[in-house]
Design a binder for these strands. Structure first.
Lengths: 177, 177
DNA sequence: GTTTGCATGTAAACGGTTACATGATTGG
DNA sequence: CCAATCATGTAACCGTTTACATGCAAAC
């Protein structure tokens, strides 16, 4: 699921500038499952324009930089739907934290506890963010997605609180090596 | 958390060839949180050798291709531990499925149901795989990690079974466009 | 007799991030 | 006065995937 497809999808929900698309990633529920930087969004939008999947209109603003507002074309909409009819790429979850936990016995216990604290804090923040956004969810799809995210975060927090001791109890056997 | 670091970590659990490291990703619990292909593992191992983090011994086998068995050096072990003492990169979860659910109203209901079925099946397979591996977990770290994965998969399956109707009920309003 | 497993590697292509460049305006 | 917000873009770099190359042996 590349940045081009993600941009197309977002534009089915309404016109937007590249800057706004980036904001949507950060502020709305999107960022829990997809992500993109300016360096990939702007080229993606230009290429989508060249290919006729989106159209642009430039708006000159007073006291603000010019902006390019992108709209999805009917060709783009069809292409986006077609991409959702093809088999979806599989999820990929990369978790340096979980990987690190495999090596808890190599680390000083304070470090393991610190990792757990930091991770829990991060998950709690994401959870709070998602809850804040959940209220604003309108479509059934959005509600489903934010509900999904919340379910996962609740499960993670619950697991960490009830099982952290199992990985914290270890005495760093190799710490003195 | 790049392939080099992941290889180093795996080698702290014992010597292995590049081929075996790849197998560990697939067969053991690792692949739920990290992943790598041969095209990245072999160059990573060569570079780690050049840098002195691992050592190699070549074994000629009968009726089998030669193999290169890698061992982590004390320098490598220190470097690995040092990398775990630095702040960890954040988790990133990319889910084309969840992204697609945001656009359920653009799709024929049969496709949405199909996506859900496929996704549930995938998660169930991963869950079963993790359960099979959980029994073999030895260290506290391994038990913790497979328990973590199971908690997440249970939460996902539970959520999908109780909430799929909310996203399936929709009539593809735009399907006739 | 074809596929699977063992085993290592390279090269090209890809997709993406990071840092840089520019510049006005508003809020603290 | 400094930081943040708005706004777009490029270029260098990075890590990884994919496809290719090789080849024997065992299992189906």
């Amino acid at each position: 699921m590349d940045v081009r497809t993600i941009c197309l999808g977002i534009l089915t929900h309404g016109d937007a500038t590249g800057y706004e698309i980036k904001k949507l990633f950060e502020d709305d529920g999107y960022q829990h499952f997809v992500e993109a930087s300016f360096g990939s969004i702007y080229p993606a939008l230009n290429r989508l324009t060249d290919e006729g999947y989106v159209s642009v209109r430039e708006e000159s603003q007073e006291k603000r930089p010019d902006r390019k507002v992108y709209s999805i074309t009917s060709t783009g909409r069809s292409a986006f739907i077609a991409s959702l009819l093809k088999p979806l790429p599989e999820d990929r979850h990369r978790s340096p934290f979980v990987f690190a936990m495999l090596f808890a016995d190599l680390l000083p216990p304070s470090r393991v506890s610190g990792m757990l604290d930091t991770y829990i804090e991060q998950v709690e923040q994401k959870f709070a963010h998602l809850n804040a956004h959940h209220a604003a969810s309108q479509s059934d799809g959005e509600k489903f997605v934010s509900g999904f995210g919340r379910a996962v975060y609740v499960a993670i927090l619950d697991f960490l609180h009830t099982h952290r001791a199992e990985v914290e109890k270890q005495q760093a056997a190799q710490a003195a090596e």
